[in-house]
Amino acid sequence: MNLFDGEPEVIRIGSNFVRILAIVEPIHAMGLILANALQGAGDTMAPFYISTWVILRIPFAYFFAFIIGLQSSGIWIGMALTQLLQGVLTARKWKEKEIVSEEKYTVES
């Protein structure tokens, strides 16, 4: 964080942000990869609906920052929860996908 700003408060807030989001980033990345795989497999609606969970980001951030009183850390926790939710929902949808045998689609001559 020191590369961006030398202010101790900025470094503290930025470091908190990196620590909190680093925990859920692998799950978020998995969700993004699986969402693209679902789209490639022809299921475009599920990733679309799951991505709309992002609208919860602002209410979550507000709740943790101001109602619970976690301030800027609450904003990062709210963001992390929506990323976690998106990753988990996408993974669950991917697990429900059915693999179709190629034999079903072979052309007989």
Results as ranks from 00 to 15, higher is better:
1 M>A: 15
2 N>P: 09
4 F>Q: 10
4 F>M: 14
5 D>Q: 09
6 G>A: 14
7 E>M: 04
7 E>P: 01
8 P>K: 10
8 P>C: 04
9 E>D: 07
12 R>W: 00
12 R>T: 01
13 I>L: 14
15 S>T: 15
15 S>G: 12
16 N>D: 12
16 N>C: 04
16 N>K: 07
17 F>K: 12
19 R>S: 12
20 I>F: 10
21 L>D: 03
23 I>C: 08
23 I>H: 05
26 P>Y: 13
27 I>P: 02
27 I>T: 11
27 I>V: 11
28 H>G: 11
28 H>E: 10
29 A>H: 08
29 A>Y: 12
30 M>D: 02
30 M>P: 00
31 G>S: 01
31 G>T: 01
31 G>N: 02
31 G>P: 00
33 I>F: 08
33 I>W: 02
34 L>K: 15
35 A>K: 00
36 N>V: 03
38 L>M: 06
39 Q>Y: 04
39 Q>G: 06
40 G>C: 07
42 G>C: 04
43 D>T: 02
43 D>A: 03
43 D>S: 09
45 M>R: 01
46 A>I: 08
46 A>F: 09
46 A>M: 07
47 P>R: 02
47 P>K: 01
48 F>N: 01
48 F>S: 02
49 Y>N: 04
51 S>C: 01
51 S>W: 00
52 T>V: 07
52 T>K: 02
53 W>E: 03
56 L>E: 03
56 L>K: 06
57 R>A: 08
58 I>M: 14
58 I>K: 08
59 P>S: 11
60 F>A: 15
60 F>G: 09
61 A>I: 12
64 F>Q: 01
65 A>P: 14
65 A>F: 14
66 F>M: 13
66 F>E: 12
69 G>F: 06
69 G>E: 05
69 G>I: 09
73 S>W: 02
73 S>T: 10
74 G>H: 15
74 G>R: 14
75 I>Y: 15
75 I>N: 14
75 I>V: 15
76 W>C: 06
77 I>P: 08
78 G>Q: 11
79 M>A: 11
80 A>R: 05
81 L>Q: 04
81 L>G: 04
82 T>W: 05
82 T>H: 05
84 L>H: 05
84 L>P: 06
87 G>C: 03
88 V>G: 03
88 V>F: 03
89 L>P: 05
90 T>N: 00
91 A>K: 08
92 R>S: 11
93 K>M: 10
93 K>H: 07
93 K>F: 09
93 K>W: 06
95 K>C: 02
95 K>Y: 09
96 E>Q: 12
97 K>T: 11
97 K>W: 05
98 E>I: 10
98 E>R: 07
98 E>W: 04
99 I>K: 13
100 V>H: 15
101 S>K: 11
101 S>M: 04
102 E>R: 11
105 Y>D: 05
105 Y>F: 08
105 Y>E: 05
105 Y>W: 10
105 Y>P: 02
106 T>E: 15
107 V>K: 13
109 S>N: 10
109 S>C: 07
